[in-house]
Design a protein around this nucleic acid. Structure first.
Length: 566
RNA sequence: CGGGGCGUAGCGCAGUCUGGUAGCGCACUUGCUUCGGGAGCAAGGGGUCGGAGGUUCAAAUCCUCUCGCCCCGACCA
């Protein structure tokens, strides 16, 4: 491609509405433009990157027997009502009406459509397993789109769905997809971790996320330093600490804590570390009130609490309700003598506290030397978020905290959708049986952003070779010198003939502009041709990834490029 | 949805407090010079100041309403 023909409007200045590196560089490099919040145009460079990602995905999925389909983006409400998600999905589902008033939505995901497709035509165990996928634009009306392509409302996604005869067979499909995903992300040049995850709104029981490690990532996770355990922080288990010898704790004592409501305030006021305090949260779970006890330095994981209580929704009770029901003012609530709650549940770590400080259920007072079991009764469970330094739930190692960008997610769904939508087959005994499903997503457009988050410097993008829109950029440095122009043209034709994705910067720009744009756009190999080097029969080859420069004889360049791209 | 901020040329901004000629840098067009890390000189083109209503002799500027966008919190590929 010639730069004079390429529609890649580069910018010198960083657009003010872009904050993260990938967003800034994609806009500056002329890869994307914004149409509306969370909705972007992909320009030719971005489109090339997306095609390269898609190609890797297709090759790996086809290799494990998946088949590509293309499903409608506009979906009728009926199938969503069948699965029960029309009511459940909420405002993130963009709903529309056709001219007759019929209700539709823009597909945020395609479980309903694919189940409807499969149940029509698949009747026999002989047709299974079946794994269908598509690469398509999805729309989710996110509350707050942000960070460019990292969280858009419209985005490109690969979604796959597996159908099997049994749970065992479905788990095999799951493992096969898991392995394919590892190959895909590795080929994309990404540094990633697969972590255990909560299965969230899509439903199901077994689930892994593929997280690209990046400080700007929205997700927090922990991984063991010793074994392979890694999990999203929402999911990460915290083992109960081994019970020690019960210490003898002096009896409860009331201490005055005027105006000290928060853990920080009380901790500073009493000169005690937060780990010696107990925080008491009054939580509303399906209209019942519970007191939830956590160590002062720990955070409540609402997902764990919800599962523990078997509740559909949990939220912090509002101030009025807390006062009314428990007589405990906000900030001074405690478990001792607490009334008006259905039960007291405590995180394991609270049991290990030999005498903690809790609220006294009185204004401006706390209790010291409070002992679970002696001074109040509670049930114990794993209720908090894991933290850096926690013990590994699988081995004797320790957990480290990471941040990441979720680029893929695999779910074991079981028969959630096939039951709800009657997706059945006849097994070998002629018995009508629900298919066992899995579903598997990859954020194609998000990979493009994640790759940049991981591979960039102050000058621009450093594309992994597999994703680069053009792997080689040729820069004739003086357009007024015929020998320079001709050498560049010859090299351009040679590399093109060899099937290399090559960009020739034939603009009448000065050397500085060409170098800067080439580095911004991020071609892995930048070849500078100037009169100075040409006099010795050499050109300068610069590797974008490392910044390494070397002079290469002009008749060796082609071989050098081929070698490097291999 | 709650909190904070911003809408003036393609991009980045000044002007708004204190009403009176719409301005700067980059980009763009033309000419000459320059040519290995974002050149110089000269001449140009480009604006319903987000939108609507109001106050006023006069509104980018004051008032009311509205739309859009960004950032921080609960959702997800």
């Amino acid at each position: 491609m010639r730069m004079t023909r390429l529609h890649a409007p580069t910018l010198k200045e960083t657009p003010k509405d872009a904050e993260v590196a990938s967003h800034q560089l994609l806009v500056r490099g002329g890869f994307i433009r914004k149409l509306a919040a969370g909705i972007y145009d992909y320009l030719p460079l971005a489109n090339r990157v997306l095609h390269k990602i898609e190609r890797i995905v297709r090759e790996e999925l086809d290799a494990v027997g998946c088949q590509e389909v293309r499903l409608p983006m506009v979906q009728p409400a009926e199938i969503w009502e069948e699965s029960g998600r029309w009511g459940f999905y909420g405002p993130e589902l963009l709903r529309l009406k056709d001219r007759r008033g019929g209700e539709f939505c823009l597909g945020p995901t395609h479980e309903e459509v694919i189940v409807d497709l499969v149940r029509r035509d698949v009747r026999s165990w002989r047709a299974l397993p079946l794994n269908l996928y598509q690469i398509q634009t999805k729309f989710r009306d996110e509350i707050r789109p942000r960070a460019g392509l990292m969280r858009g409302r419209e985005f490109l996604m690969k979604d796959a769905y597996s159908f099997d005869v049994s749970e065992a067979a479905a788990l095999e499909s799951y493992d096969q997809m898991y392995a394919a995903y590892e190959r895909i992300f590795a080929r994309c040049g990404l540094d990633f971790r697969a972590v255990e995850a909560d299965s969230g709104a899509i439903g199901g029981s077994r689930s892994h996320e593929f997280q690209v490690l990046a400080e700007t990532g929205e997700d927090a996770m922990v991984a063991c330093t010793h074994c392979g355990y890694a999990a999203n922080i929402e999911q990460a288990e915290v083992p109960a600490p081994a019970a020690g010898e019960p210490a003898s704790v002096p009896s409860v004592e009331t201490v005055a804590t005027p105006g000290k409501r928060s853990i920080e305030d009380v901790s500073a006021f009493l000169g005690l570390p937060a780990a010696k305090l107990v925080k008491t949260l009054i939580v509303e779970a399906d209209d019942e009130l519970y007191a939830v006890l956590l160590r002062g330095d720990h955070e409540l994981n609402e997902i764990k609490l919800r599962k523990h209580l078997g509740a559909a929704v949990v939220s912090l009770a509002d101030e009025k309700r807390v006062k009314q029901q428990t007589n405990a003012p906000i900030g001074f609530a405690g478990p001792v003598g607490l009334t008006g709650v259905k039960a007291i549940v405590a995180d394991h770590a609270v049991a290990g506290l030999d005498g903690g400080v809790t609220g006294a259920n009185l204004v401006d007072a706390h209790l010291a030397n409070v002992q679970a079991g002696r001074d109040y009764q509670a049930t114990f469970a794993d209720l908090r978020f894991a933290q850096d330094g926690d013990a590994c739930p699988r081995c004797s190692g320790e957990l480290r905290a990471f941040r990441g960008i979720e680029v893929g997610h695999v779910f074991y769904l079981g028969t959630k959708y096939s039951d709800a939508m009657r997706c059945m087959f006849l097994d070998e005994e002629g018995k009508d049986t629900a298919m066992v499903m899995g579903c598997y997503g990859i954020g194609i457009s998000r990979i493009m952003a994640a790759a940049i988050e991981q591979h960039h410097d102050d000058n621009g993008i450093r594309w992994p070779i597999a994703l680069a829109p053009y792997t080689v950029a040729i820069l004739p440095l003086q357009m007024n010198k015929d020998d320079v122009v001709q050498a560049a043209e010859r090299l351009y034709e040679t590399l093109r003939g060899a099937g290399v994705d090559v960009l020739l910067d034939d603009r009448k720009e000065r050397a500085g502009s060409k170098f800067n744009d080439a580095e911004l756009i991020g071609s892995p190999i930048i070849i500078a041709i100037g009169g100075r080097g040409l006099a010795n029969g050499e050109v300068e080859v610069k590797l974008r990834a490392t910044g390494e420069k070397r002079d290469v004889a002009i008749d060796q360049v082609s071989a050098f490029v081929a070698e490097h791209l291999r």
